[in-house]
Write a protein that binds this DNA or RNA. Structure first.
Lengths: 223, 223
DNA sequence: GAAACGATGTGAATTAATTCACATTCCAAG
DNA sequence: CTTGGAATGTGAATTAATTCACATCGTTTC
C-alpha cells in the first residue's frame, strides 16, 4: 500500500492520540471516536485505517493496542533515527525540550550552534557542539535527521552542509524555503504562515472548507 | 472569490517570498519563478493568483509591488490584530522572538504565564502577565488571537478561558487537539507529527506525491 | 439458536485540487 | 507595421481526496 502523505499525516495523529490521550481502560476505539477527536468524518478514519492491513471487529471497533502496533509497523517500520537540532537559539532550545522523549524512535542526540556561549555544553539534556564539528558528528553518530532552526539567511548554506554530510531528512523552521536534492526528505514549518492563516479566518466568515467543527458524529440514515 | 484554505496558505507563502526574499531590483516576477521557489507548478501559481483580481502582463509576468498589494488586500483586508502568547516557557519565548516584527498586521502585545518567575516582567520585548489577568487583558487590550504554548494537560482549559474572554482565533502548539466553538478560528501545529513525517519519508523511497522536487520549471511543448 | 443491532469495509459518487493545453496578449525586434 | 516569441488566463481533463450508502458481519439479547 502506497500511502499518500495526507493519510500518513493523519495516521501519526491517530497514533499520538491513542498512545497519549486515550483512556487506558478502554480497549477498543470506534472510528467515530477517533474522528471526533481530530475533527474528521468517521468514514475518513476508516479509509485511513484500511491502509494498515489491520481490521477492526464490526460491533466493537478497533482494538487499541493492536491498532497502535499496526500504525507503528507502517509508519516507522521499526527504524530508529538519530536527530540533531541545528541552531540552538531560542527556538532550537524550545524544540529540544518539547520533543524530549516524545517518540521513542526519534532521538535528539546533538545540537549545533555558531555561538560559543551555546556550544560545548549540555542544553536541556542535549550536548551542543560548535558548527565546525557538524560534518564529523553527523557522520560519526549516524545522525539521519536534522531540525533546522537557524536564521533564514543561513538556512540554505547549512542545509547544503547537512546534505553533504549525509543527512537524510530535514525539518525546516527557518522562514525561507530551502532546496534539497531529490532523495533527502524535507518538511517545512512556516510558523508565520500559520499565524497569518489564523488571522485570516478570524476576519472573514469563511470556515476552512474541509474542517468539520464541533464533535458532530453523523449517523447515516438507514433506508 | 471564496478562497480555499489551501490557496490561502500558498498566497501567504508567495507574499513572504516576495516581500522578504525576492531581489529588490526585479520589478516583475514570472509564475514559473514563484513556482520554482516554492516547488510547485507554474500553472498552480497562476491559478492561485487568479483569485486576486489582479492580472499580470503576458510577456512580463506580474508586477511585484502590485502583486503584493493585492495579496495584502485579499489576505488581511487591512485588518490589524493584537496577538498574545499564552504560556511563556521555552517555546513561547522562542515564538516571541521569532515572530517579532515579521508581519506588521500581527502584533504580539502580551504574554501570559503561571510561573511567577516569568510573569510581571518584559520578555523579548513583550510584557508577560500572570494568568489571572488573562480575561481582563484580553478584553481590555482587544487581543484577538492567541498562540497557545501551554502543556497539553492545560491546553483545553486555557483555550476555554480564552474563548470566554472573547478571543477570535487560536494557534495551538500544545500537542493535543483542542476543541473550540464554531466561530473561533483554530490552527494546530503538531511539531512531533511533522518530525515523524520527515522520518517516514527518509526511510521509505516514497516521495510525497504532490511535491515537485528540484527547481524543474517545465516549459510546455508547443504544437 | 435466531433475530436485531451497530459497528466495520468498501464500491461508487461526489467534490476538490491540480495539471494540461492552448487561445490570447503584449512586448520586442526587424 | 508586421511578425514572432514568451508569457498569461482559463476551459477542459485528469487526478486525488472525501463522503455516501449499504452489504456484511460479529455480539448480544431473548
Amino acid at each position: 500500500m502506497n500511502l499518500s502523505n495526507k493519510v500518513m499525516g493523519r495516521l501519526t495523529r491517530y497514533r499520538a492520540l491513542l498512545t497519549e490521550y486515550f483512556p487506558k481502560e478502554k480497549t477498543y476505539v470506534f472510528s467515530h471516536e477517533l474522528a471526533a477527536m481530530v475533527s474528521l468524518s468517521a468514514s475518513q478514519v476508516r479509509r485511513d485505517l484500511m491502509c494498515l492491513g489491520y481490521f477492526g471487529v464490526p460491533r466493537y471497533g478497533y482494538e487499541v493496542v493492536e491498532l497502535i502496533k499496526h500504525i507503528n509497523r507502517v509508519l516507522d517500520a521499526g527504524k530508529l533515527h538519530n536527530v540533531a537540532v541545528v541552531g540552538a537559539g531560542n527556538l532550537g532550545q524550545a524544540l529540544m525540550t518539547f520533543l524530549e522523549s516524545r517518540r521513542a524512535t526519534l532521538r535528539i542526540i546533538a545540537a549545533f550552534d555558531d555561538d560559543p556561549r551555546l556550544s560545548n555544553r549540555v542544553i536541556n539534556g542535549v550536548p551542543c557542539h560548535p558548527m565546525e564539528r557538524l560534518e564529523e558528528l553527523v557522520e560519526g553518530k549516524e545522525i539521519r535527521i536534522a531540525i533546522l532552526c537557524v536564521p533564514g539567511s543561513a538556512a540554505q548554506r547549512v542545509a547544503d552542509r547537512l546534505v553533504k554530510a549525509g543527512i537524510k531528512g530535514i525539518l525546516n523552521f527557518a522562514p525561507v524555503p530551502i532546496r534539497l536534492p531529490v532523495g533527502v526528505a524535507l518538511e517545512e514549518i512556516d510558523i508565520t504562515s500559520h499565524l497569518e492563516r489564523v488571522a485570516f479566518f478570524t476576519t472573514t466568515r469563511a470556515t476552512p472548507s474541509k474542517e468539520r467543527r464541533p464533535t458532530q458524529v453523523r449517523l447515516r440514515a438507514r433506508s
